[in-house]
């Protein structure tokens, strides 16, 4: 069965994805609210997997919930917490519940999260997880055994277009495409001229690229990301623009900037779509889309 997100990717339309984060606990009200708010506005919703190595309700549970509520989920899977048996098992479970899109990630270090003494797994890496998906689709598990009942996924991965040095990242990007990535959601980009250069390169590969858009909420947040988030570079002009926003209006400015960037990406056909991350402020995604002229 071809996933509906795959059909959207192949349709040539400007693709819009966003993401939701499962809760710390079993109270799913807020996540359900975000799913209801976004399911009909975006083409697919990522469900994050213990983001920043913070233990939460599982991404698979969240993705099943998106599906049950009529949305199109993208199951984020990191290699940090599960070995190859557990990863394959969760893929079988996902397929059985109609969750047919997967985003393969290496995963942050456990040291950065809230269970700092945990054993990290990394039995597979993101490119090997992609290859494992393609193998399962051929009816075989990684042990070479036949599967009773098949799977079919639209599989993706990530890339950091502004990583320094960039060359090792690009080699990894090419390996992900070779291993079977059909779409790539990028780390947040803010310097669109730099992103255009990355796209000149990425266009050589048969893979759809969705530019990562992270909502800026303040000048301090932008400076924090520049200092602490690998491969994120908010240009000084944008930081100044955020700092110049009237008191209490910084978020409005952030929405305006995100909307402006998305609309430029779309108008100049820089890439195939965008992935909007409004970390912790998911309810603002419709406003960003409105500012971008998408709805």
């Amino acid at each position: 069965m071809v996933s509906s997100f795959k059909k959207v990717l192949e349709s040539g339309k400007f693709v819009v994805t966003s993401e939701i984060a499962p809760p710390k606990g079993t109270n799913l009200d807020r996540m359900k609210h975000h799913i209801e708010l976004l399911r009909d506005k975006v083409d697919a919703l990522n469900v994050t997997d213990h983001q920043s190595s913070v233990m939460r309700f599982p991404s698979l549970g969240g993705a099943i919930l998106v599906k049950e509520m009529g949305g199109e989920p993208i199951l984020q899977m990191t290699c940090r917490d599960r070995n190859r048996l557990a990863l394959q098992a969760d893929l079988l479970c996902a397929a059985s519940r109609g969750v047919n899109n997967v985003l393969c990630l290496t995963g942050d270090s456990v040291i950065l999260g809230d269970h700092k003494e945990a054993k990290a797994v990394f039995d597979l890496d993101s490119s090997q997880l992609l290859a494992a998906i393609r193998r399962l689709e051929k009816g075989k598990d990684l042990g070479g055994n036949d599967l009773d009942g098949g799977v079919s996924f639209c599989a993706g991965a990530i890339v950091t277009p502004e990583a320094n040095p960039i060359e090792p990242q690009l080699i990894k990007f090419e390996k992900k495409v070779e291993a079977g990535a059909e779409f790539i959601q990028t780390q947040a980009v803010y310097d669109l001229d730099g992103f255009k250069k990355f796209m000149e390169y990425a266009r050589n590969f048969d893979v759809k690229i969705l530019a990562g858009i992270i909502l800026l909420t303040s000048a301090a947040m932008a400076r924090f990301m520049n200092k602490n988030v690998a491969g994120v570079n908010v240009p000084q002009a944008l930081i100044d623009e955020m700092a110049g926003a009237p008191k209490g209006k910084a978020i409005q400015k952030g929405i305006e900037i995100a909307g402006r960037m998305i609309s430029r990406i779309r108008n100049e056909r820089m890439c195939d779509g965008v992935h909007i991350m409004a970390i912790g402020k998911e309810e603002l995604v419709p406003e960003i889309m409105t500012a971008a002229g998408l709805i």
Binding site: R80, L105, T106, G107, D108, S109, L112, A120, F122, D125, S126, S127, Q128, I158, V159, T160, A163, N164, P165, P168, Q169, I171, K172, K175, Q187, A230, G231
Partner: peptide, 17 residues
């Protein structure tokens, strides 16, 4: 992370995340 296929996304200016 003991990765064998290239760097993760956490690498920054040649240093580990």
């Amino acid at each position: 992370k003991g990765l064998v296929n290239g760097p993760c996304g956490g690498t920054n200016n040649g240093k580990c995340e």
